[in-house]
Design a protein around this nucleic acid. Structure first.
Lengths: 347, 347
DNA sequence: CAACCTTTCGAAAACGTTTTCGTGTTGAAA
DNA sequence: TTTCAACACGAAAACGTTTTCGAAAGGTTG
């Protein structure tokens, strides 16, 4: 077992000083070609690679990004991670991932754990519980320590920092308008409980679309679902008792459940019932019928978030003098579009 | 912006030495209660937290696990990560995640990047390309440096290390036997190309099951799929031209596509065609009909892998004298079971 | 031959910890 | 009064780098 070799060992072996070895490997002109080549050859032979931890300590930066998300078993978040990873790797950064499991406490712990020097900055999406409590002191805390934070998707107005989101409101508005213009009048909404920021925005978009087209918003058409495993009854009641000709679901799980229940009630999709879902994941693509969705480009979102964070990190270096960096925080909006599939009539 | 406070700063502020501060915070009996309390109060006030990087350098361990997987946008891998994260967090470890994107080169780069001190050990699953090339020198390399490696799911016999897998062969054997015992005779197999280790094993299990039950294995029933996006034609040909009464698919995507094609051919599932898929993911649970699957408990797999790695890491400490640790590598097998749903007749 | 400049290298500090060892002070025992 | 233990604390090394500064050796110039 040949353990990792250090500068000191190389220095001892070649009977030169540590500084000489370091300089040789970094091609310093201070060192004669003779010794430089000798050192480099030796280092190559022993497969020397500088120790990252030592570098981090010296440079006071780790070249590592911390990502805190509610869940990873969730197609959308997985795609965001993919995007983050892509640009992180392009720029020589590593990615540490932590999951809050939608828990406030876990989120706090994760932030604290990573903030102690392990990473240079955060990319995060709020847990449900955090949004519900509306307690963001832990995020303030790390930001006060000078650690940049980029939030995505589930964000809050109470924190001023870089954000990347989609325009949930407009996207919902467009999707519902599309249904209306296709002839639908009685459009139901399957949404989450209100404290989930994106669910709220999408609901608002739905309402606005109806109003704009002169359709009354009726409570009986709005189903708020807390837990996916117990939503069947509510949806069943809706489809069985109300005359619905379209459904707008704020995620694809709600949509696929609705379609399944419709089938069991001998309601044909899309002839008798049109369905549009938010979030384009694998389910929509492979279910029968395939589902028309609002694409929510996670990869693009992840890439953008990583770019914003890294840009801030690299700028910090230049403005090292702490000359009140132009703290202009930006909110980037990732465009969405409607992916037409078989759960809607108009093609 | 109140930057993180260090021992040195506390020491200066209180006019004591750095050692005194460190000892006070660690409740050393060397320090008088007076100064101890004073230091602790001050540290608490300034929210002192030891710098992880410095600790890592000193202790020569990072309390971080590196995970290298082919993709994260893949329900199975996402569940494994979830499992790894769970026990890692319980034991105070962080998790760095890298994706190989099924590329050999990327896998090599990731290993090298992480091996330079960033992590204490690896958990990994081989990329397709790596399995195809059967080139594992990069893994040997990090192992030679004394870094423990645990492989899961996509493993290789050529490397001796800890592994955690499911019994792909037996699981496939059982699933196909289940179909046979339910009355199916003409059972098709939708599988991957051979170099993917798990695909191969599942194929072998299928073959064995047929043979055991005295059914001839016929090539026309075996469809090898390279790319999910171009498999429609092959499956369509199979279902349209051969009399098939059951399909065994090595993953759920193949299964759901087969069901869709069956529907378009007016073949009813499960009456005319039974379907069983490997890997229990969300698709199987939400498709119509729901699909009977071989559960592949990713969480359990991830938890086990993390446990094995951490156990080895913590043991290293004790056997520090490098007394030829009992290098008994283990291969843990995670049990699978058949989850009966609506794509098969027998309940 | 003296003064000076290059070339080439090493010593040391720094990053933030922990830990070992040494040392000064105090009080009590002899 | 001397001796010694107990107590409380500080100095320094170590982890592995990079970088600044100083210095020795040799060569060049006037």
């Amino acid at each position: 077992m040949r353990r990792k070799v250090t500068l000191k060992q190389i220095a001892k072996e070649l009977d030169v000083s540590v500084s000489t070895v370091s300089k040789s490997l970094r091609n310093s002109p201070e060192i004669s070609e003779d010794t430089r080549l000798k050192v480099q050859a030796f280092a190559k032979l022993y497969n020397y690679k500088p120790n990252n931890i030592a570098l981090s300590l010296k440079n006071k930066k780790t070249k590592t990004i911390g990502v805190v998300i509610p869940e990873i078993v969730h197609h959308f978040f997985a795609t965001v991670i993919t995007g983050i990873e892509q640009v992180a790797n392009e720029q020589g950064y590593n990615v540490i991932i932590c999951m809050s499991n939608e828990s406030f406490d876990k989120e706090v712990i994760n932030l604290e754990m990573l903030a102690n020097g392990s990473i240079d900055g955060f990319i995060m999406s709020l847990s449900k519980e955090t949004q519900q409590k509306a307690d963001y002191h832990h995020i303030m805390e790390v930001m006060n320590q000078g650690m940049p934070v980029v939030m995505f998707d589930r964000v809050t107005n109470e924190i001023f920092t870089d954000k990347v989101i989609i325009d949930d409101f407009s996207a919902a508005f467009d999707a519902v308008s599309f249904l209306i213009e296709g002839g639908a009048k009685k459009i139901a909404l399957l949404t989450t409980v209100d404290y989930v920021s994106v669910g709220k925005l999408r609901t608002d978009g739905y309402v606005k679309a109806l109003q704009t087209h002169g359709i009354e918003v009726e409570d009986k058409y709005i189903v708020k679902i807390e837990d996916i495993d117990n939503c069947d009854a509510k949806i069943h009641y809706l489809l069985n008792n109300e005359e619905v000709d379209a459904v707008f679901a704020v995620n694809e799980l709600f949509a696929v459940v609705a379609i399944k229940i419709a089938k069991s009630l001998a309601i044909n999709v899309p002839e008798d019932l049109e369905v549009i879902a938010f979030t384009d994941g694998i389910i929509s693509k492979y279910s029968t019928p395939t589902i028309t969705t609002v694409s929510q480009n996670g990869i693009k979102m992840g890439r953008k978030a990583a770019q914003m964070l890294i840009e801030r990190l690299e700028n910090e270096e230049n403005y090292d003098v702490e000359e009140e960096i132009i703290e202009q925080y930006k909110t980037e909006i990732i465009e969405t579009n409607l992916i037409l599939r078989d759960s809607t009539k108009t093609k």
